[in-house]
Nucleic acid binder design. Structure first.
Lengths: 230, 230
DNA sequence: TCAAAAGTGTTCTCCCTACACCCATGG
DNA sequence: CCATGGGTGTAGGGAGAACACTTTTGA
C-alpha cells in the first residue's frame, strides 16, 4: 500500500482488533502478552492486536493475529466488546474490536515473526499501556459470566485430563473453591465427560482417572446452559 | 465539516452504530424500525443507526440516536456485537457497532426530526435491508441469553404491573409457557418484586394485584444470576 | 348465571449440600 | 509407615414440577 493516498469526505477512525488469549497451566489462568517493538510505549507489554485490513472481517483479523502469535489454527475465539472511547489511544482515534481466545498452552509454539511474547498469571500481570488493562478485565468478566452457565474447558485443557484438573480450571476462573465430591458428582451427572478408563499421574502421588469431554453433551449444555452452584 | 479534506496514509473503514430497540406491548415483543429517507434502499425499513462522530464514543452515539427516535434519556442499552463483514454494506466498508435497548413503549414519543418510525412485532417484521436482519436476530439471541440468568423487565414494563404482565414478558421473549402458579411462586420467592397492595384491571375481568420491582434485589440478582427453569 | 381471568396450597421427587473414611502411591 | 491426594456414599433439606378448586367481575 502507498502512503497518503486515501481521501474521504468525512473523517474516519482507525479500526483495530485486540485479543486476550487465555491459557491454563493446571493451576492458574494465564494471559499471553507481547512486548511492543515500536513507539509509542516501545518495550511495554500489550495485548496482541493489529489494525484491520480492508478486505478482512474483524474475526479473520483476530484469527490471523492469533496464528502469528501462537501457531494455532481453529482456536475458540469470541468477540466480547468494542472499545471506542475517543481518547483511548494516543495515536489518534482508534476503535478496537476485542476478542478473547481460549487455547491449550501446551500446543502453543512461538510463531515466526514474533519478537517477544510471554505468559503471565492473572495475579502477576505487568503494567499494560493504552486501555489494555480495561480490555483484559472485561474479557475476564465475560469469561466468568460464561463459565457460570456454559461448559468451559474443552478449549483450555488437553484432550485427556483428570477431574481435579477440570475443577482447578473452574476454581481458577471463578476464584472460588468447590467440594471435590460434589463437583465431580455434578459434572458426571450432567454427562459432560466420558470416562476413558485410563489413569495417569498428574501429581507425584496416586494415579487419577482420565476423562475427555463428551462432544455431544458439551454442545447440548452449551446451548441449553447449566449452572454450577457455589 | 467540509467534504474531501480527510487524507490518511492507510485506508480506513466507516464506523456506524445501529440499535435494536425492544418494547413490549403486554403480549408481544416489538422492535422499532425507521424508514430510510435516502438511497440506497430509500423507503426500506432499517434499524435506527448512524455514523460515529469523531468526538463521541459508540455508546454516546447510540444514546444520542435513541433519544432522537424515542425522546428517551437514561435508557438501558447494551452493546452486543460489532458487525464487520467486508461486504455487509453496499456503500463501502462500514463497520457497525450494535446495541440493543429496552424501553417502555408507553413512554416513547416521536422525536423531532424523525421521518417515519414504526413498531413491529417479532413475527411481523418487514423485510430489512443491509444485514439488519442478522443484527436483529443476534440481538434477540443475546436478550434471550440474558433473560435466562438475569432479571429482565425493569426497563420494559411500566412502574406498576401485574404478575401476569411479567409472565407474559418472559413468555414473549423466550417463546415458552410457564405454569402460572409456579412462575409466581418462583418470582416472589427470590424476592424480585414488592407487593404494592393495589389492584388494577389489565383485562376486562377480575382485577389483579400490582407489583413493582424491588431495586435492591433486582440489582443483586443481576449480579449473582438466577435461573428460571423451564 | 356464565365465561374469563385471578388467587392460592399440597405432594412428590430430585438435586444440591455437607460431611468422613478408605485406598493407592512414592518417599 | 507416613503423608499426600484420589475415590466414593449417605442423610437431610429445599426447591422445582405437577396439578384443581374457588373467587371476582363484566357481559
Amino acid at each position: 500500500m502507498q502512503k497518503g493516498t486515501y481521501t474521504y469526505d468525512y473523517p474516519r477512525p482507525m479500526v483495530a482488533t485486540d485479543c486476550v488469549i487465555f491459557g491454563f497451566d493446571g493451576t492458574k489462568m494465564q494471559v499471553l502478552l507481547v512486548k511492543r517493538g515500536e513507539e509509542p510505549y516501545k518495550d511495554s507489554w500489550v495485548l496482541p492486536g493489529g489494525f484491520l485490513r480492508m478486505e478482512e472481517s474483524a474475526e479473520e483479523s483476530a484469527r490471523m493475529m492469533l496464528r502469528e502469535k501462537t501457531g494455532l489454527r481453529e482456536t475458540y475465539i469470541e468477540q466480547f466488546h468494542t472499545f471506542s472511547a475517543p481518547e483511548r489511544d494516543v495515536r489518534g482515534r482508534v476503535i478496537s474490536i476485542a476478542y478473547y481466545a481460549l487455547v491449550r498452552k501446551q500446543e502453543v509454539r512461538q510463531g515466526a515473526n514474533v519478537s517477544e511474547v510471554g505468559w503471565f498469571p492473572l495475579d502477576g500481570l505487568p503494567e499494560l499501556v493504552f486501555d489494555h488493562k480495561d480490555i483484559l478485565d472485561m474479557a475476564l468478566a465475560k469469561l466468568r459470566e460464561r463459565i457460570m452457565f456454559q461448559p468451559v474447558g474443552f478449549d483450555l485443557l488437553p484432550e485427556k485430563f483428570t477431574m481435579r484438573a477440570l475443577q482447578s480450571l473452574y476454581e481458577a476462573i471463578l476464584g472460588v473453591e468447590f467440594d471435590r465430591r460434589n463437583f465431580s458428582k455434578k459434572i458426571l451427572h450432567v454427562g459432560l465427560l466420558t470416562d476413558l478408563n485410563e489413569s495417569a499421574r498428574s501429581t507425584p502421588k496416586r494415579m487419577a482417572k482420565l476423562y475427555k469431554f463428551n462432544a455431544e453433551s458439551y454442545g447440548r449444555l452449551k446451548e441449553k446452559g447449566f449452572r454450577l452452584e457455589f
